[in-house]
Lab assay of single mutants.
Amino acid sequence: QEVDTIELTRQVKEKLAKNGICQRIFGEKVLGLSQGSVSDMLSRPKPWSKLTQKGREPFIRMQLWLNG
């Protein structure tokens, strides 16, 4: 299904801030990505339709983390 990447990243940033989790830790533990990649993804999320399967994976992980 289509994911609203802008809304998703907004919710993730909100939860990170609320729980005092830094992007570096979130990136390493949840997404398996560097802090730079995570920062870029959270500040400039690409539309779901423009992402490859590999590009979608971190957003799917974010969704699971939010719902977890």
Rank of each mutant, 00 (worst) to 15 (best):
L8G: 14
P58C: 15
L66C: 02
F26A: 01
Q11S: 08
M41L: 14
Q63D: 02
P45I: 08
K13C: 02
K15N: 13
T9S: 08
S49K: 14
M41E: 03
L66W: 03
S39P: 09
G36W: 13
M41Y: 13
K54Q: 09
N19V: 14
L31I: 04
G20P: 08
Q11E: 05
R61I: 01
W48C: 00
L33Q: 05
G55F: 14
D40A: 07
S43P: 04
S49Q: 07
S49R: 13
N67T: 12
E57L: 06
F59I: 01
Q63F: 05
L64G: 11
L42T: 02
P45S: 11
S39F: 07
L66H: 01
S49H: 14
R10H: 05
K15L: 11
I6Q: 14
W48A: 00
F26Q: 01
I21D: 01
Q35V: 13
W48S: 00
N19G: 10
D40M: 11
S49V: 07
W65V: 00
K50D: 14
M41T: 10
E7A: 15
G68F: 04
S37N: 12
E57Q: 08
I60P: 00
L16Q: 10
R44P: 03
K50Q: 14
S34T: 06
K13I: 03
F26I: 02
P47Q: 11
R61E: 02
Q23A: 07
I6A: 15
T9A: 14
V12W: 05
P58E: 11
V3Y: 05
F26D: 00
I60E: 08
L66Q: 00
R24Y: 10
G27P: 02
S39T: 13
G55R: 03
V30Y: 12
L66D: 00
K54F: 06
Q11R: 10
Q11L: 09
P58Y: 10
Q11F: 03
K54A: 13
F26H: 00
S43A: 13
P47Y: 05
E57A: 12
W48Q: 00
W65P: 00
Q53V: 10
C22P: 11
L16K: 14
Q63K: 14
R44F: 12
Q23W: 12
L66T: 00
L33P: 02
E7G: 11
L31E: 02
Q23P: 12
N67S: 12
Q35P: 15
I21E: 06
Q23Y: 07
E28N: 08
D40V: 03
V30S: 01
L16C: 11
G20L: 04
L33I: 15
S37K: 15
C22M: 11
Q63Y: 11
K46V: 09
G27Q: 03
E28T: 12
F59E: 02
S37F: 13
F26C: 01
N67Q: 10
Q53K: 15
L66M: 05
W65K: 01
S49M: 03
K29E: 14
V3L: 13
C22G: 04
L33M: 12
N67I: 03
D40E: 14
P47A: 10
V38D: 07
L42Y: 02
L64S: 15
Q23S: 12
D40F: 05
S43R: 09
R24A: 07
P47I: 04
Q23K: 05
V3H: 06
E57H: 06
S39K: 14
S37L: 15
V12G: 13
W65M: 01
G27K: 08
G68P: 01
L8C: 06
E2F: 09
A17E: 11
I6N: 10
V12F: 04
S49I: 02
T5F: 05
L33N: 05
I60R: 15
K15W: 05
K13V: 02
R10P: 07
P45V: 08
G68Q: 06
L8D: 15
F26W: 14
M62V: 02
G20S: 09
E14S: 08
I25E: 15
L64W: 06
T9P: 04
K15V: 05
Q1S: 14
S43K: 12
Q63M: 09
R61D: 01
I25K: 12
F26M: 02
S34C: 10
L33T: 11
G32W: 03
M41R: 04
R10A: 10
A17R: 13
C22Y: 04
L16S: 12
R10G: 10
C22R: 07
K50F: 08
K29A: 05
K15Y: 15
Q23N: 08
T5P: 03
V38W: 15
V38T: 15
W48L: 02
I60S: 08
V3D: 07
T9L: 02
I60A: 11
E2S: 08
Q35C: 11
A17L: 08
T52G: 06
L16A: 07
E7T: 02
G68V: 01
R24K: 11
L51K: 00
L31N: 03
E2G: 11
R24D: 11
K13P: 07
G20C: 03
P45K: 07
K15H: 05
K13R: 09
E2Y: 03
S43D: 15
Q53F: 06
R44D: 15
E7F: 15
E57Y: 02
D40Q: 10
K54N: 03
I21G: 02
G20Y: 10
W65A: 01
E28Y: 05
T5S: 07
L51E: 00
E57C: 01
A17I: 12
Q53S: 12
N67V: 06
L64R: 15
M41K: 10
L33H: 07
I60V: 14
S34A: 13
G20R: 11
R56V: 02
K46R: 10
I6E: 12
L51F: 04
G36K: 12
K29R: 11
R24H: 12
K46E: 13
K29V: 06
Q11I: 04
A17T: 07
W65F: 03
G32K: 10
K54H: 09
G68K: 10
I6P: 06
W65E: 00
I25L: 10
E2V: 07
N19Q: 14
S49N: 14
G27N: 06
R56P: 00
D4W: 01
I6C: 10
G32F: 03
Q1E: 15
S37H: 14
N67K: 14
Q1T: 12
T5D: 02
G55N: 00
L51C: 02
W48N: 00
V38P: 03
R44W: 10
K50L: 10
R56L: 02
M62K: 00
N19K: 12
I60Q: 08
K15A: 08
Q1R: 11
L66Y: 00
G68R: 08
E57V: 06
Q63P: 01
K15G: 03
S34I: 04
E28P: 08
S43V: 11
P47W: 14
D40W: 07
K46F: 05
N67L: 09
L42F: 07
I25Q: 11
Q35S: 14
L33E: 04
E28D: 04
L16I: 06
K50Y: 08
L8W: 07
I25G: 05
K18D: 02
K15T: 06
E7L: 15
Q53D: 14
L42W: 08
G32N: 06
R44K: 15
K15D: 01
E14M: 15
